[in-house]
Design a protein around this nucleic acid. Structure first.
Lengths: 184, 184
DNA sequence: ATATTAACCTAACAAATGTTTGTTTAATGG
DNA sequence: CCATTAAACAAACATTTGTTAGGTTAATAT
């Protein structure tokens, strides 16, 4: 399928380094034929990006819903685990969302950033639900977790720790220092 | 200067989207003239990258040396602060190191990754010097801090928290949970 | 004064780029 | 069986790309 081929290439080469002929070749057709499905290269990239955000969001929402609702830290860990899983072995679509945004057209850039912000709103909620010693730390915890998670694609190796394990470690390190004094 | 112009463009547009004519124009000359100074586009990029690593490494080394040598956490925070400062308001060179690596030529990629690994060795040492409850956490702490730091260029705003403040928050959140029980 | 060299220009090169146009094929519905 | 439409092709288009080759200028050293 065309979108799959585009995701494959955009994921590995980035936007600028990917040519319409690359994508067409992978999809088993010629470059011109792509314009029957998408009206431009940027439109094709936007479609891949949207599908990527949709998939990650779906995975995270599902993971959070089925989490232990009585432990906000566990909810957060489940969400982060789903985020990492989508990113690290969730196929090409998810990684395109994290890769470099094409800086050329400002309007496209703004659209992509808006998509990403909408998505990250989920983690804002998850972190705000935590019982923190200092509620002002919520923002820092969110930035730390998402940053560390998104950067993990640079050092992740399939034979190392699994996405779920990584999420557990990250959340645990922050939880130890922020657990409120309710030893029940 | 040619290298400055290259850093400027590579930083903002990435490798593939930057043309030799872009760089030449900013440097006040024509595209062909660049080949007097550098033998190819990749050589030019490599030079920018090397200079970027050199600058960050220098900043971090200096910050760690002048830190309070009796507090490993403070040393780490100073190092991270210098790292963030280089990245966020340290000019274009530093950011090129963090931006996307050109995936095209594998040999170039490997060279760049090696440069980055050499640099990150400093933080491996800084984290290994920490008095941790569980020494196995050293690796996770390093990955978390560097990941969160490198990702900060996507959300950093000059009118918000300063690089030094960001570093302090990040280190504090981890320190609270990992302080060994020596209350002296 | 002459030779040398650094630094840049001019002009072109072949290849690659996103995109358009007109045409063909294959499937589908009446 | 025929009309319609989806989906692809073939071939070109105008630019843009990295790169090369040879010429020009100004400074420097001998």
């Amino acid at each position: 399928m065309v979108l799959d081929a585009a995701a494959y290439r955009f994921c590995r080469q980035g936007y600028a380094a990917t040519t319409m002929r690359d994508i067409a070749s992978d999809a088993g057709m010629l470059a011109g034929s792509l314009y029957y499905h998408f009206k431009s290269k940027t439109a094709l990239f936007l479609a891949v990006h949207e599908e990527g955000v949709r998939r990650i969001a779906e995975a995270v929402d599902h993971a959070v819903l089925t989490a232990n609702q009585h432990d906000p830290w566990q909810c957060l860990e489940n969400g982060l685990s789903a985020h990492l899983q989508s990113l690290l072995d969730g196929g090409d679509y998810a990684q395109v969302v994290i890769r470099d945004l094409p800086a050329e057209e400002a309007s496209l850039r703004d659209q992509l950033i808006e998509l990403r912000d909408d998505y990250e709103l989920r983690f804002r909620k998850l972190v705000d639900a935590l019982p923190l010693n200092n509620p002002d730390d919520a923002g820092w915890i969110r930035l730390m977790l998402l940053g560390a998670a998104n950067w993990s694609k640079t050092w992740f190796r399939p034979n190392g720790a699994s996405p779920a394990e990584i999420a557990a470690h990250f959340v645990r390190l922050l939880r130890n220092g922020e657990t409120v004094g309710t030893k029940s």
